[in-house]
C-alpha cells in the first residue's frame, strides 16, 4: 500500500500578525513556524495504519513551501513517515487553493497512492479546499472532517464530525483521500531515536515550476487587521488591581456577585 500525507508549515497562532509589505500575506519575520495542527492528526493516522498493517505501507510526506518547510517535514518523518517530497516554492502564499492542489495532484498522478491523508484545513488560510480538490483532480473518493478512521481489507470506515456533536459514518473503497479534524487521534511526540533515524530518510526536492502551469482562480486583494468593534473594557496592569477592578465591575453589572 502506498500512502501520501500532505502537510503544511504554519505560524504559531498565538503570535501577533501584521501584513507584509505588498499586503498580500502576513509578514513572516519574528514568527515561529510549526506543523499545521490538523496535519499532525493526518500524519498520526497514516502511521497508525502502517503499524496496523505490520509496517508494509510506505508513507510519503509532501509539503510545499520555502526552505524552512523542511523542519515540518523532518517532524513528520520522525513521527513515522518513510520518505518525503519537498516542493520548493518561496511564493507559495500567492498561490490559491486551486493552484496548490493542482501541484499536489500533478505530483501524485503517476505515483499510484492508495490512500491520501490531509488536514481538513490550514490554520493560517483555512480554506478547507485543498484536500477535496486533490481528490477530485485524481478522481478518487473523498470524505472530509474525520474524527474516526478504521481500515479493513481495502475499505475504510470514517466518522465525520457534523454540527452539534453528531457524527456521520460512511464507507469508502480505496483509492481515497480523507481530511482530518482535530481529535481524530493523539498525535505522537517524536522520540529522540526516531528523530535521529529521520535524518537519514530521503527528502526529494522539486520546484513549483516543474509541477503547475495553472493560473489562479481567486486572488488576495488585500490583507489587514480586522477593524476593532470597540469591544469592551481592557484591564491591564498589576494583578491585585485587576482583581479589584473586575470584582467591582461584576458586582455592578451582573447579579452573580453580591
Amino acid at each position: 500500500m502506498k500512502i501520501l500525507v500532505c502537510i503544511k508549515q504554519v505560524p504559531d497562532m498565538e503570535s501577533r500578525f501584521r501584513p507584509n509589505g505588498e499586503k498580500t500575506w502576513y509578514d513572516e519575520s519574528d514568527l515561529a513556524f510549526r506543523m499545521n495542527e490538523y496535519d499532525e492528526y493526518a500524519v498520526e493516522q497514516a502511521v497508525q495504519l502502517k503499524e496496523q498493517l505490520g509496517g508494509e505501507p510506505e508513507i510519503t510526506v509532501l509539503s510545499i513551501g520555502p526552505e524552512r518547510t523542511v523542519e515540518a517535514i523532518k517532524k513528520a518523518l520522525a513521527m513515522g513517515g518513510d520518505r518525503a517530497v519537498h516542493i520548493r516554492d518561496d511564493r507559495y502564499y500567492q498561490k490559491d487553493p486551486w493552484q496548490i492542489a493542482s501541484m499536489i495532484a500533478s505530483y501524485a498522478k503517476g505515483e499510484g497512492f492508495d490512500l491520501i491523508f490531509t488536514g481538513m484545513q490550514s490554520q493560517d488560510r483555512g480554506s478547507a479546499q485543498v484536500g477535496v480538490i486533490v481528490a477530485e483532480l485524481l478522481g478518487v473518493s473523498c470524505a472530509t472532517t474525520l474524527v474516526g478512521f478504521s481500515y479493513d481489507g481495502g475499505t475504510i470506515t470514517v466518522k465525520r464530525e457534523l454540527e452539534g456533536g453528531i457524527k456521520g459514518v460512511a464507507k469508502l473503497k480505496l483509492p481515497a483521500l480523507v481530511t482530518c479534524q482535530l481529535g481524530l487521534n493523539t498525535p505522537r511526540y517524536p522520540t529522540l531515536p526516531n528523530i535521529m533515524k529521520a535524518k537519514k530518510k530521503e527528502i526529494a526536492s522539486l520546484t513549483a515550476a516543474e509541477l503547475t502551469g495553472e493560473a489562479e482562480l481567486t486572488a488576495t486583494a488585500a490583507i489587514y487587521p480586522p477593524a476593532k468593534k470597540g469591544g469592551g473594557l481592557v484591564l491591564e496592569g498589576e494583578i491585585g488591581a485587576q482583581v479589584d477592578r473586575l470584582m467591582g465591575i461584576l458586582k455592578e453589572k451582573t447579579a452573580v456577585l453580591r
Binding site: P11, M13, F17, D124, R125, A221, P226
Partner: peptide, 9 residues
C-alpha cells in the same frame, strides 16, 4: 486568516 487575527479581501 490566522484565527481571525487578520482579514483578507
Amino acid at each position: 486568516a490566522c484565527n481571525a487575527k487578520l482579514r483578507r479581501t
